[in-house]
């Protein structure tokens, strides 16, 4: 493998989050190193998605802090996170239903747009040039994900598996340094899962993107991740490389206790 796991880029300290009476996360700490694939696993409702939502500022934790490349955030917001190079996909696909695939991916380029509204209104030099540049970049992503044939299809009309892929594409179009994936393979058939696995590994390998991955399929998790965090009822019950986690008695009992 060409990639080399590096320093800690993302460090979460004592994060607690609750909704009314429901404690979604209690005092969670863990770190993510550069270029690694870090998995978060746990039974349904364990707080995995909430964890990702805290990382990129969609949810505001009541306690705790996020240290991103040495910079301390007690209040992250989604826009700041995006600027800092964090992008993500969603458990329940959150594509822009009224737009086609190209436009969905083009939204991922938004932070890099420099032309202003007036230039755009007249399709004026810089606006037009930029549009072409970004289109070329988006086409690279399209080629990478092998979705050339659906370029111009409105995403609402695509089958589920392809929507998931476009969701990934939109995140990749941002050229993120940290990519958060919330169950990217849920509901897919074996073949689609294999494709998705390949894409994830290729992204990690070719672009050196750090990946935080939530996934229920244990075989996949154990196979592709470098380190695994295990959550249960909002608490961290395990953390380490796949083998260590597999043999952790707490993890085993949590999984046996749950309905999986």
């Amino acid at each position: 493998m060409s990639r080399q796991i590096g320093e800690v880029v993302l460090d979460l300290k004592q994060v607690s989050l609750s909704f009314g009476g429901v404690k979604a996360l209690t005092g969670i700490s863990f770190d993510v190193r550069e270029h690694e694939i870090r998995a978060i696993i746990g039974p349904n409702g364990a707080g995995k998605s909430s964890m990702l939502n805290v990382i990129n500022g969609v949810y505001r934790p009541q306690e705790g802090e996020i240290i991103l490349r040495g910079q301390r955030f007690t209040k992250m917001n989604p826009y700041k996170a995006a600027q800092a190079g964090i992008s993500r996909t969603f458990q329940n696909i959150a594509l822009f239903k009224g737009m086609n695939v190209i436009d969905n991916l083009m939204t991922g380029r938004n932070l890099k747009i420099r032309s202003n509204l007036i230039q755009q209104a007249f399709w004026w030099g810089p606006a037009r040039r930029e549009e072409l540049e970004h289109r070329a970049k988006v086409e690279e992503v399209i080629d990478f994900l092998e979705i050339q044939h659906i370029r111009k299809t409105p995403v609402g009309r695509l089958p589920y598996g392809l929507q998931k892929r476009v969701d990934l594409g939109r995140a990749l179009a941002m050229e993120p340094s940290i990519l958060l994936l919330d169950e990217p393979m849920a509901g897919m058939n074996v073949e689609e899962k294999q494709d998705m696995c390949r894409f994830i590994l290729d992204v990690n390998d070719q672009f050196g993107t750090t990946i935080v991955l939530i996934e229920h399929d244990m075989a996949v998790v154990m196979d592709i991740s470098d380190r695994v965090v295990v959550l249960d009822y909002g608490k961290k019950i395990g953390d380490g490389d796949p083998d260590a986690v597999r043999n952790n008695p707490d993890v085993i009992s949590a999984y046996l206790g749950a309905s999986h």
Partner: peptide, 10 residues
């Protein structure tokens, strides 16, 4: 179409 996702991608 999806304001939360929009904010997330910047």
């Amino acid at each position: 179409d999806m304001d939360v996702a929009a904010e997330v991608i910047g």
